[in-house]
Amino acid sequence: MSQTRVLTGITTSGTPHLGNYVGAIKPAIEASQDPNVQSFYFLADYHSLIKCQDPKRVQQSRLEIAATWLALGLDTDNAIFYRQSDIPEIPELTWMLSCVCAKGLMNRAHAYKAAVAENEEAGNQDPDKGITMGLFGYPVLMAADILMFNANKVPVGRDQIQHIEMARDIAGRFNHLYKGDYFTLPNAVVDEKSQVLGGLDGRKMSKSYNNTIPLFVAEKKLQKLVRKIKTNSLEPGEPKDPDACTLFQIYAAFASTEETATMRQQYADGIGWGDAKNQVFEYLNAHLEKPRERYNALMEDPGHIEAVLQKGAERAREETAVTMDRLRAAVGLGRFN
């Protein structure tokens, strides 16, 4: 039986936080250990250049994200873990796909439309002011990431479903024009059970809101951040609603069913916010202590991380080189024999 191919990209423009772990990293690492699945995990560092022109930040983010995935147990023997920028065939395929992709399709991309809308609301005469070709065309780069490995499934949030549909459109167009089954049409996989954690201010935890709790922040800093989580003014002894509480949500994302039920009862019994925050900190700190140690050791040994990524790139390029030879021949760019 052939393995199902699953591909996940991680944009390297920030520091991994608790929300990233719960919503994407944890389920992906569990999937990487399934022998029936061929997983591809990559650092989407070309994508990061669309929004971030700070080279130090991009470089640091690449290191932090790679160290995070390795510290948390990514199975790099089973999964293929690589940097997007180490695969030169990716931008080559992006150009080929750009040449069959309709501009009208890109005009409908959510990110582009939102940028145009912002310009119009600001009264700019040029609706494309400040919009780069990177932002406009990045769905094609995303399609190349996916189609290069003929991924069957691509786990995404609901806001990314459109990009998978675009990848299907582009793949179908290429297959039709060049009369062959060159690309598998991918399917978006949205995990309805995947949790979206609230941040320090109660909104979705996101670096855009500056309300995150970094995954491997130092113990004392973690304690300070947990204490900053927004709660209401209910006094100790007054029953509290756990389902409307970011603090409880964060705890439940890491705790067992039994532990969560116990905490829920404490809310009903009127636990004080100070006590609740201390319990959440102690639980998180204990849960993250060993991975944090591994993470810190990896950050001190970037050469090891580089070696892991180079090995992953070698495995990836064993496939991409063959694929591109076939595609070059298909479009008329093959070698003369």
Score class of each variant (00 low, 15 high):
218 A>R: 09
154 V>S: 05
179 K>Q: 14
332 G>F: 10
156 V>W: 02
93 L>T: 01
293 E>R: 13
124 N>A: 15
107 N>A: 15
216 F>I: 04
88 P>V: 03
176 H>V: 00
165 E>A: 02
10 I>V: 15
56 K>D: 15
309 L>M: 08
82 Y>H: 07
30 E>K: 13
29 I>S: 10
171 A>Q: 02
156 V>D: 02
98 S>V: 08
234 L>P: 00
47 H>M: 03
280 V>C: 13
106 M>K: 04
258 E>V: 15
294 R>F: 07
153 K>L: 14
324 M>G: 05
41 Y>W: 11
302 P>Q: 06
266 Q>A: 13
268 A>Y: 09
297 A>F: 01
300 E>D: 14
68 T>D: 02
168 R>H: 12
15 T>E: 10
311 K>S: 14
190 V>L: 08
142 M>Y: 04
139 P>M: 07
190 V>D: 08
7 L>P: 01
3 Q>N: 12
143 A>Y: 07
185 L>W: 04
141 L>H: 08
49 L>S: 05
287 H>C: 02
17 H>K: 06
210 N>Y: 08
73 G>I: 03
308 V>D: 13
290 K>H: 07
279 Q>M: 14
125 Q>C: 02
295 Y>A: 04
126 D>K: 11
99 C>G: 05
103 K>V: 05
215 L>M: 00
191 D>Y: 07
71 A>I: 01
201 D>L: 03
108 R>E: 11
57 R>G: 00
177 L>C: 10
150 N>L: 05
204 K>P: 06
264 R>Q: 11
131 I>N: 01
327 L>Q: 05
87 I>A: 04
286 A>G: 07
98 S>Q: 12
333 L>T: 06
15 T>D: 08
204 K>E: 11
308 V>R: 13
192 E>G: 03
311 K>A: 12
290 K>T: 11
181 D>V: 00
120 E>W: 03
257 T>I: 09
284 L>A: 05
142 M>N: 04
142 M>L: 12
19 G>V: 12
306 E>P: 03
33 Q>P: 08
120 E>A: 07
106 M>L: 15
76 T>H: 15
293 E>A: 08
107 N>M: 09
164 I>P: 02
43 L>P: 02
307 A>R: 13
234 L>E: 11
272 G>W: 01
8 T>E: 04
220 K>F: 00
175 N>H: 06
162 Q>I: 12
185 L>F: 02
134 G>L: 13
113 K>E: 10
92 E>Q: 15
246 T>Q: 08
287 H>V: 04
269 D>E: 15
256 S>N: 12
214 P>C: 01
322 V>G: 00
208 S>I: 04
295 Y>M: 07
312 G>S: 10
78 N>Y: 05
206 S>V: 02
320 T>S: 15
85 S>F: 07
186 P>V: 09
48 S>H: 04
164 I>R: 00
124 N>D: 12
18 L>T: 03
81 F>V: 09
268 A>F: 06
86 D>S: 05
236 P>H: 03
157 G>M: 12
29 I>T: 04
32 S>I: 03
21 Y>V: 08
236 P>T: 02
1 M>E: 12
315 R>M: 09
82 Y>C: 04
252 A>Y: 00
167 A>M: 07
